[in-house]
Design a protein around this nucleic acid. Structure first.
Lengths: 221, 221, 221, 221
DNA sequence: GATGAATGAGGCTTCATTCAT
DNA sequence: CATGAATGAAGCCTCATTCAT
């Protein structure tokens, strides 16, 4: 009863999959998909190699579980925000970007995005899964946000598909940078500032204001 | 000289490393660094595996040679253009982006960028090499271009470091997309249009013109 | 006694080993000895893997129990028939063959014979057990039947040991065929016809009767 | 030149596949397909594990090569004999049985037959291969021999398919016995005598001649 | 009795690198 | 110069058996 060993044991049974998923997430992010050895995942979770296979059929399913457990729920939340937002679309845009940054970009979850960009071509089935469960949904959200802006007259008409890509690019890049050449850079990318730059640039552009235009608010930087 | 056979032989002897580098480039781009087998490189170059080791100490040196042979020279050219350019900086910007697109982005060389973003963390020495020889120089070029624009009053003042990143992001992403999830997408990214969108968005921003501003040229889309 | 719940429980408790043996028989027959996983045996019996070890020391003992429970009793019956038979030996022969066919050959028990022929050499202790408990007794029965036929002048004198083997061969083969290459054959072996062919051929031979011999009954096919 | 080491080396290159096939044959016969470890095959051939994969894609292909190298050619020879035989069909029958005995039955090749009977259901692709390349051809030969006997009036009319099975059974069984329970039997099966018994029984049957039939030659035992 | 989580040895396969020829 | 046979460490996955609860 008051024996801590016993208690530890009991807790384990239910906690095990979570522990394994946490260990797997860490290692997938640290080393990538191919370079992550299941031995190491098990070791980091404090169990033996075989135990892992009690909970996950194979490496691929383990990875999918990591994605489903960690990435997919965040998408759901963001979709909720998008559906129910009542402010200006420029604000919504900032909201989505910041939300993404807090829940994914500035998290080890960013490593999952990086990993998929990096290795999808070597693991087609994993790629398909990730594309269907994550990329497609993420793109759709951005597109809907832009359409809202155009529909309400806030944004200029634009090629939505292209603009979606243009928006995703800096966000994805931020995640890639965090996990690429980080040891080569003296100072890390200043992410928050980068995001601000990006949002401002995206909203206002980089060109100096033409002489006659007085109405545009100056960028707050 | 007049012995054609001998000449062929000599040419062949000198051409060996080039043939190996070409084969290596192809395979590195197709499969990534770790997944490229030296067996296959040798086979594609039409030589035996052992021969490869006559010219390159190991996999890492082979990859470095591929980069030095293919990527580095393009950087030199771009730097030349930058130094001697006399038109507007907006034009220079377009020039650099298009030049990059023609020589790298729209080339299998884009695969090298993708590969390094993807795998650099698993191969720190390769990463360091690539960072020093390619990334640093590329970033410096963009920065100098932006500084020129600001200095000449064409661009608004900005955080150069951040803006450099914002500019590189879409270009890098275009290369990554070409090599990621390509089999999951029904239609490939429309790169030229994407680049136009990017340049226009970057120069003009996305917000509708405020009512009073008449001077700004409408985006030509 | 009058508590039905308790009774159910008790019955269940006693039935456990039987349920495990039934599951084990099924799986041993389906997959062979080595390829049968104790996990699956337990699962098919509706218990946990650990429970299996409460009743059977290990895989080997489980298998022995399957044989003792299912195969050995049939041998006893056949011996009873043999001892007390009063008709002609040709009839007895048919009787034994048909009895075997009904109780073993045409049953999943045939899989046990197949399995032992197939894997005995990899499991010497199991082999020894099976040889002592099954093969020796089966061979002895055939031999006694043939000796009876010769002693009563019904059969020509013969090498009993050899003839025993000659008789066993088709019966064993029928069992092997049922479990080998069954997925490669468009139609299964026609077992009853095969047995008839065998009995007739064995009794009459295949040569055409020489011209002068009118007395031999034509084969009833 | 006169350095034996060098010579050994040279010989190896060409001999290697044969050495590996020989080692594989030995071990497949000794232990069966599943229980044969490729490590052991390599070790018995005096090479390392990896070397095996220079010559054979995987375990399955190694096994197929063993069959193609050892079993298939014998079938070809037998077919040659069958096509060109000019004597009586009873003689041809004996010839085929003895030829099979010398080239396969009394050889370690018999272990291949045993192995396939034993494990085909666990390795469907191997089973299909063996069925197509060996079983079908073997059965066809027996059938043709029997048809010849019937066509020439030497054999009674019969169900050819069934008779083929009746004939194959004892031959297959002889091979199985050699590799099953051999360590349990005090004395091995007397194969030659068994074959004689079988041929005689098959040709003449076992029944004592009916009184009036004087023409049939007595069995020579 | 019953459970089922955990173990770890063992098997197949891959590939960068070496080295005798 | 060139070859290509050989190596062996390393990775994924399976499963009989154990043991704390």
């Amino acid at each position: 009863m008051n024996c801590p060993l016993k208690k530890r044991w009991e807790r384990r049974k239910d906690a095990r999959p979570q522990e394994l998923l946490a260990a797997a997430l860490d290692l997938f992010v640290e080393r990538g998909y191919a370079a992550t050895r299941l031995d190491d995942v098990a070791a980091r979770a404090g169990v033996s190699k075989g135990t892992l296979y009690l909970y996950f059929t194979n490496k691929e399913e383990l990875f999918k579980a990591v994605v489903r457990e960690n990435v997919v729920p965040v998408l759901g939340e963001a979709e909720g925000i998008l559906e129910s937002y009542s402010g200006s679309t420029a604000e919504l845009f900032r909201e989505l970007v910041l939300g993404w940054w807090e829940r994914i970009g500035n998290t080890k979850l960013s490593g999952i995005t990086k990993l998929m960009m990096a290795e999808s071509s070597n693991f087609p089935e994993v790629a398909q899964f990730y594309h269907d469960e994550v990329i497609r949904r993420g793109d759709a959200m951005i597109a809907r946000m832009l359409e809202r802006g155009v529909a309400q007259g806030e944004f200029r008409p634009m090629d939505i598909r292209q603009a979606t890509h243009v928006i995703c690019a800096p966000m994805i890049m931020l995640m890639m940078w965090k996990h690429s050449f980080s040891s080569c850079r003296p100072e890390p990318i200043a992410a928050e500032e980068y995001l601000n730059s990006f949002v401002e640039l995206f909203l206002h552009g980089v060109l100096a204001e033409p002489a006659g235009s007085a109405g545009a608010p100056p960028p707050s930087r």
